Simulated scan of single mutants.
Amino acid sequence: MNESRDPTLHQRILSEIEGRIVSGEWAPGHRIPFEVDLAAQYACSRMTVNKVLTQLAKAGLIQRRRKSGSFVREPQAQSAILEIHDIKAEVQSLKLAYSYSLVKRTIRKARAEDGLRLDLPPASPVLEVVCIHNAGARPFCLEERLISLATVPEAIDADFTAIAPGPWLLGRVPWSTAEHKIQAVPAGTDATAALDIPKHTACLIVERRTWDSAGPVTHVRFTYPGDRHALVARFTPASQ
C-alpha cells in the first residue's frame, strides 16, 4: 500500500515512539534513532518519519538538534498564568458602578507572620492597607495588603484614599516576578463584616506576591464571596 494513502502508518510510528517516551522506556536525554534508521525500520520514507518527529517536538516530548539528532526532553510543566488585573475594570465589565473605600492604613514593623507572607526579615518596615471594593451597592472584594517600604519607600507618602494600592503600585513599580495562590475557605470574622455576608459563607481567596530586582514588593489577599466571583485563566501549550 502507498504510505501516503495510509494514515495509520504515521499514527503507528507516532504512537510507538510516544509510548516509549511516556512509559519511561526512553528516558530524558535518550537519543531517538536517526530518521534513516526509523525509515528502514518502518519501511517508509524519511519524509514520513520527519513529520512524526516534528509533531513530537511540537508536543514538547523531544528536542531536535541540528547535526546531532533528536533527544527525549525533560518533562515540562504547563501552567496557567493569572493576569494581574484591575478590580475597578473587573467590576465595570459587569456593568456595575465601582467604588472603593480605605478601611485601614498603618505603617509598622513586620511581624513573624508577615515574614511568611512577604518574605521579609522581622522588623522590616511595611505599610499595611485594608480596603473594600464595591460593585454597585454591594461589597465585591476585601483587600488586605502589605507593602515593603524597603523596596517601595515612596509608598510611605501615598494615603490611598483616592486610589487603591493595586493600580498605584502597577503604575510605579515594574515587578519582575509574581506568585498566585488560590483557595476556597469559609468567611472569617473580618470578611463577614467587611463583605456583609453570613459567617462561614464560602469565599474565594486569591493571594499574590510580587518581587522586583530590589526584593519583595507586596503581598495581597483578595477575599471574594464565592457566589459573586469566578476565575478564568486562558493558556496555550508552550509549543504554540
Rank of each mutant, 00 (worst) to 15 (best):
E179Q: 14
V152T: 13
I156Y: 05
T218E: 12
R234L: 11
R145T: 10
A184H: 01
S148E: 06
V206A: 07
C141V: 08
D196A: 10
D190P: 01
R234N: 09
D196S: 08
P186F: 00
D227F: 02
P216G: 07
T210A: 11
R208Y: 02
A202W: 01
P198L: 12
P225W: 07
D227C: 03
V217D: 04
E207V: 05
E143I: 09
A150P: 00
L195H: 02
A191F: 02
A162S: 15
P153F: 14
W211A: 08
I163E: 14
A155N: 10
D212M: 02
A193Q: 10
L149R: 10
H219V: 06
R209T: 15
V185C: 00
K181G: 13
Q183H: 09
A193N: 08
E144I: 13
R234S: 07
V217H: 03
V220K: 04
G226Y: 14
C141S: 15
G215Q: 04
R221A: 13
A191T: 02
F222Y: 15
A233L: 06
V220D: 02
H180T: 08
E207W: 04
A191L: 04
A184E: 09
L204F: 07
H229P: 04
E143G: 13
L231H: 08
D159N: 14
I147P: 01
P165R: 06
G166T: 13
A202I: 03
V217W: 01
T189Q: 12
A214I: 04
E154C: 06
G226A: 10
G226S: 11
L169E: 11
A214L: 12
L231Q: 10
W175M: 12
V185N: 05
P225N: 11
A158Y: 04
I197C: 00
H219A: 13
D227P: 03
H180P: 00
L146M: 10
W211F: 12
D157L: 15
S148V: 10
T151Y: 12
I147F: 11
R234I: 10
V232Y: 11
V220T: 14
R172T: 08
A184S: 07
I147H: 02
H229N: 09
I163Q: 13
P167D: 05
H229K: 10
P216R: 02
V152F: 13
T189Y: 05
V232E: 14
V206T: 06
L142T: 08
C203I: 03
I197E: 00
T189F: 08
R209C: 14
V217M: 01
K199M: 05
R208H: 05
T201R: 01
A233E: 04
V185Y: 00
P153L: 14
H229C: 11
R208E: 02
I147D: 03
